[in-house]
Nucleic acid binder design. Structure first.
Lengths: 255, 255
DNA sequence: ATGTCTTTGTGAACGCGTGCACAAAGATGG
DNA sequence: CCATCTTTGTGCACGCGTTCACAAAGACAT
């Protein structure tokens, strides 16, 4: 999972559990595919398989939205698409700004999945004056000086941060001060925001590290002890005898 | 959170809870920053603040790894960096292939966070023959025909999929058949893999939709009923009286 | 109209994750 | 060597999320 919500202790928003909200876009995507194939109805079992979840979980998720199914038949695809879209707030248009137009920012600007779901890239913003005016994905990049006016003129409430780590917090502060209340953060930093502002984080490096953990387990399930002995472990600092430079003695659990 | 693990029912890997594993990279990043500033020790309170988590949670997380702290003092930064790195499997080199060198794939290839953590981009692979040989991030792109041999020659066990949605499952199948057992998927699709293969998913569109949900709640906490009445809701299919085309009558809960 | 069959919606049990609160451990000063 | 102070490590309770299993509801055939 490349994401982690920034605290918010599972604030069950109006009775819909956070875990359910996180799955709704998944259902929506599967339903949209069915809709394009003109499939009229779908059972919880089929839809769950398409979304990669347990069917009981899916039914419970939908039960939080209301009773939208028909027993013995299933769910009306079009109707459900509309209900989920409305619940997620996708029936309205969300102007979004992307700050930091490097490789990743450019990739995001070109990403088609935004426009198709009610998200509109209102502006691309970068701190580099040389970038200003250059079109990326058909939109001219604007300089960060104009950040505040862009936010206010377009009524932007969602900001995407794709800057280097060091610039993320200052940019975040300016976005929030200008009126942004939801932030998607791609910079590898912990952002501090006031109450009432939502932050979601996408961290590519963390995802890989989690994969590496499981990979290591799979690979070294039998040869684990061997590698542990071979790797040079830093000596644990013992405050009483701490005078020489760090040695190469492998750390062993003291008795 | 831009990620969601693909089932694996919280498989507590060797006693370390999945939730803890997901936080270890966060601690590691904070610790690395401290290490660069030559800070010798850190308390759970300080480190927790830097990582953006509760200090009790942090201590419990570390307790799964062992007793690496000193009461009254805190944790030795260098020692802890090593222990977490080892636990995550970052003391060894992980060759990684990136498949699909579009905007996103190129951004990933250029992303510095990989190399700095023991991940090495072994190859860039794309299906477009016109891309073959073109250098991206200093690495020449190779054609998908060579996917299997690249995987095997380099002993790659982690693959990153940054292709369009339609190509993701076939690419995934080929990766798995060639020996890859961990996949980081950026394509907006549910991947089906055999047991023993880990899949993590990063979905930009889903993250934005979750933000939109909370944004909508914040914005329309008082004007909710109003917008619901204004939006044109598709009529619910009533199987008994289903003859005309869809009307515009707002759907209302039947008595 | 009645019976059968399918599929939903949900009550209930269970397990994981979180956070409190405190005892144990060690450092530090006199 | 003893007292005090800091900080870790963890037992415990609570709440969220998941899953099972089944009753209720409706479609459909006869």
């Amino acid at each position: 999972m490349a994401t982690g919500r920034t605290h918010r202790p599972a604030t069950r928003s109006r009775g819909i559990p956070e875990a359910t909200v996180a799955r709704l876009p998944l259902y929506l995507r599967a339903l949209t595919a069915l809709s394009e194939r003109s499939v009229p109805t779908v059972s919880s079992e089929e839809l769950a398989a398409a979304a990669g979840v347990n069917s009981a979980k899916l039914r419970k998720d939908f039960s939080y939205l209301g009773s939208y199914g028909t027993r013995g038949v299933g769910y009306d695809v079009e109707y459900l698409v509309y209900q989920i879209s409305r619940e997620l707030g996708l029936t309205q248009d969300w102007p979004v700004v992307i700050v930091g137009i490097g490789n990743l920012g450019a990739a995001l600007a070109n990403y088609g999945g935004f426009a198709s779901r009610g998200f509109r890239v209102a502006a691309l913003i970068d701190a580099d004056p040389a970038m200003a005016g250059k079109p990326v994905a058909g939109i001219p990049v604007q300089h960060s000086d104009e950040l505040e006016s862009i936010i206010q003129d377009n009524g932007v409430s969602i900001g995407v941060i794709a800057t280097p780590a060091g610039a993320a917090q200052p940019v975040c502060d300016r976005l929030v001060a200008a009126g942004v209340t939801s932030i998607l953060n791609f910079a590898p930093t912990v952002l501090t925001v006031p109450d009432g502002v939502d932050v979601r984080k996408v961290d590519l490096s963390i995802e890989l590290q989690i994969l590496a953990f499981h990979e290591q387990r799979k690979a070294g399930e039998e040869a684990a002890a061997q590698t542990a002995a071979a790797a040079p472990a830093p000596v644990r600092k013992d405050s009483a005898t701490d005078q020489g430079p760090d040695g190469d003695v492998p750390a062993v659990m003291p008795a």
